[in-house]
Write a protein that binds this DNA or RNA. Sequence first.
DNA 1: GTCGAACGTCAATGCTGTTGTCGTAAGGGC
DNA 2: GCCCTTACGACAACAGCATTGACGTTCGAC
Lengths: 250, 250
Amino acid sequence: MTDRTDRAGRPDSVDRTERTERVVPETERRRRRPTKQGTVLSEQVIVDTALRLVGQHGAQAFTVRRLGLALGADPSAIYRYFRSTDDLLLAVADELIGLGLNGWRPTGDWRADLREVGLRIHAHSLAHPQAAVLAAYRTTGRANEIRAIETMLGILRGAGFPDPDAVSLYHAFIDQALGFAVLDSAAIALPATAQHADSGVWDTAYRDLSPDTHPHITATADLLAADMRRSAYPLALDLLLDALAARLPS
Amino acid sequence: MTDRTDRAGRPDSVDRTERTERVVPETERRRRRPTKQGTVLSEQVIVDTALRLVGQHGAQAFTVRRLGLALGADPSAIYRYFRSTDDLLLAVADELIGLGLNGWRPTGDWRADLREVGLRIHAHSLAHPQAAVLAAYRTTGRANEIRAIETMLGILRGAGFPDPDAVSLYHAFIDQALGFAVLDSAAIALPATAQHADSGVWDTAYRDLSPDTHPHITATADLLAADMRRSAYPLALDLLLDALAARLPS
DNA sequence: GTCGAACGTCAATGCTGTTGTCGTAAGGGC
DNA sequence: GCCCTTACGACAACAGCATTGACGTTCGAC
């Protein structure tokens, strides 16, 4: 794991003369010079390429050099658009949120809506597990994230939860969704060898125990091996919604 | 992010003569030669040092080179004890589980016991956030993990849940605990700059929205900023336990 | 006391993110 | 339609990463 800290610590003081900063905000860009191989770069192109790259070749493909290669540009050109790989990652994270939200409209049934949103977040993370694992625990503060929060808060307040409850329950709901998304994505995103090793454990280590020392595991070994292959999120989500319904002021 | 895949792909076929494998199981070790600087290595010493190192200097300190430095040994010596950094990570993960379990005994009240176990897992992850983030989604199959599963399954079966339910609910329970542990640990384990940027978002980006376009966020901005500073796990845990109690066959 | 081999050390390989420097060409001003 | 500024893509270099093959010391069994 590499250090994503801003080591250099660019000074806060601003020169009288406008410094030529390496990164220019997307809206202020004027010149677009194609790379040697003809690509015209932009934030959007870079983010899309990163998402595709990670989807095809795993999280380990999320490197500036491979991204440059995929873009047909020198790796360092990316630093004209993002301050660091971390900055780029946040942009990718927000793109993911947007993908999950597109095309969905609330029905007005709070429980069905929350359930749908939860499953969508989860499903979309699993569709881009490598990126989800990197991005799920960041707060981007970008457009799509804001839209998502507004939507979910609206559902809870519309259902009749008082504001303090709506906020706390939103927090529990979204973190549960993201937590499961990370866990399940991570399992998919593991390098092949590690993934195989981890899943094999349920068929080997947990089957060779003695009923004397481990009565509960041996009694349920088959059930365990089967259940652990699936995600527990749908069940956990329904349990959460059960509890929410029970707490809804009538 | 570096590639943890076993690239070389050591062949499965075994020579007639016992190959001199790089890694010798801890139980079969006979010779213990001190390093130049006098340390005597062992799995336990390496795991402990790794945990301490990561706790003091962050997840970015989890590198073979820094570990070697902290141990007073050549980095490559670690490969005499673990096949790869991933193998070492699993050992660290299991050590973490063990630390969380030590000294705890079930009381017989299933709800109180589950609650205590959940909070313990969560708290212990936060105490070693850097390691938790790396380890929480792995299945180690090692001693402490097995002990933990046996315990939790026992609580659920003892409470009266039929075996299929006990297994599914165990799965939902443990994954929710680990999911929140990852999320909350990750927030703590972020590099200082990223952490500051992420948390600051709640006080800046989400306060400057218009009530016209974002009525729900602006109406609850203060509540949001306050709530997001805390972990949502205690609430989510209680919600889960509520739902469990409601499903318990009477 | 001898000797095989376990295990710590060294050196090298091919990755990684990041940055200082340079030159080219884009596009506004006239 | 030309000119000049400067944005931005390319290049090269650096430090740090995991991993491995070879080497030699010294442990410990006999």
